[in-house]
């Protein structure tokens, strides 16, 4: 493989990793606070639809992004109400959210835009376009490093850079702030947090709303950054890969980034290998597609390393007995 091919594969890796990373970090907040979230997929899908619909109607990409985030946060609040206040089953709440998103986005899409559930094709000002970092054109002549800077680091849309910045921010919030300490504590031992006079309910709601915010970015990435419009079920299970990545990264922000890059790379590779014979034998594309899931199952089973989630995860907190 020559440099150009490697670069374009890595470029695709970054693009494909972005929504995974955003969704994965989203899940991290909620699960670290002790609320299991298998509804990442649904929140992303709802955000993708809202972002594309509003961007198409208003002609403004920022309004689209805001709408996506608003819808995602609302959905997260609904899930939070079920899982935190009403002490319902967190997993079932997630399933319901996913299904609700699939149903409502298609149903409303068909009704509003009459294009079989798709939103109108977005024009130039209605979606996020590539940002050229300074000097990328000038430096592209420099051997090796030039193309890496110009093609790989520069030339992505805004949401890609937001995802990258979200990693150190999440790390800082989680490990260097009072809020982060409390967040981690509430996922491990809510009783202790409660005894210290801090509201478990409030903390968990904050975590769930941050999850909603990040899922909003992730969903908007699909429809108004990577794509130019919403298509039926366009998140295509990426929320579950993000969930797998979260487990694979053992609920830590920096490993989450590397895991998402790995899973994104597998995805890019799989697209590249489509129909191609590699190393003399045809590697089934499906094998690469299934690899993230298989790796997660293997890791979860403790065959390589061991993934242990937050101890209080999945259980609603009851103050008194």
């Amino acid at each position: 493989m020559d440099l150009a091919l490697i670069l374009s594969t890595l470029d695709a890796t970054i693009r494909l990793s972005t929504p995974l990373l955003l969704a994965c970090l989203a899940g991290l907040y909620s699960e670290r606070a002790g609320v299991f979230d298998i509804g990442l997929e649904g929140k992303m899908l709802a955000a993708a639809f809202a972002a594309a619909a509003v961007a198409a109607v208003s002609g403004n990409v920022w309004l689209g992004l805001l709408a996506g985030i608003a819808v995602s946060i609302t959905t997260a609040a609904l899930q939070g109400a079920a899982a935190i206040t009403l002490k319902g089953n967190q997993l079932i709440a997630g399933v319901a959210i996913n299904m609700l998103a699939v149903g409502l986005t298609t149903f409303l899409g068909i009704q509003w835009f009459a294009q079989g559930g798709r939103t109108p094709q977005l024009k130039a000002g209605e979606r996020f376009t590539e940002i050229q970092l300074p000097f990328s054109a000038e430096l592209s002549g420099v051997p090796v490093l030039g193309p890496i800077y110009a093609d790989l680091i520069s030339g992505h849309n805004l949401l890609v850079y937001i995802a990258v910045i979200a990693v150190p921010i999440t790390w800082w919030v989680l490990y260097r702030t009072r809020f982060g300490l409390r967040l981690r504590a509430v996922g491990e031992n809510p009783k202790a947090v409660d005894t210290a006079g801090i509201s478990v309910i409030l903390l968990r709601y904050q975590a769930v709303l941050i999850t909603g915010l990040l899922c909003g970015f992730a969903g908007a990435f699909f429809s108004i950054a990577q794509g130019s419009g919403f298509g039926n079920n366009m998140t295509a299970g990426k929320g579950f890969i993000a969930l797998a990545a979260l487990i694979f990264a053992k609920w830590k922000p920096v490993p989450a980034m590397f895991t998402c890059l790995l899973f994104g790379f597998l995805d890019a590779l799989q697209i590249r290998l489509q129909g191609a014979e590699v190393f003399g034998i045809g590697v089934p594309v499906q094998a690469i597609q299934a690899l993230p899931y298989i790796l997660t199952v293997v890791l979860l089973a403790g065959f390589i390393g061991k993934a242990v989630g937050p101890k209080a995860g999945g259980v609603a907190y009851s103050k008194e007995r």
């Binding site: 109400a81 079920a82 899982a83 089953n89 079932i92 709440a93 319901a96 299904m99 609700l100």
Partner: peptide, 8 residues
């Protein structure tokens, strides 16, 4: 699912 399962 939401009402029967998660919002008991």
């Amino acid at each position: 699912i939401l009402f029967t399962g998660a919002m008991e």
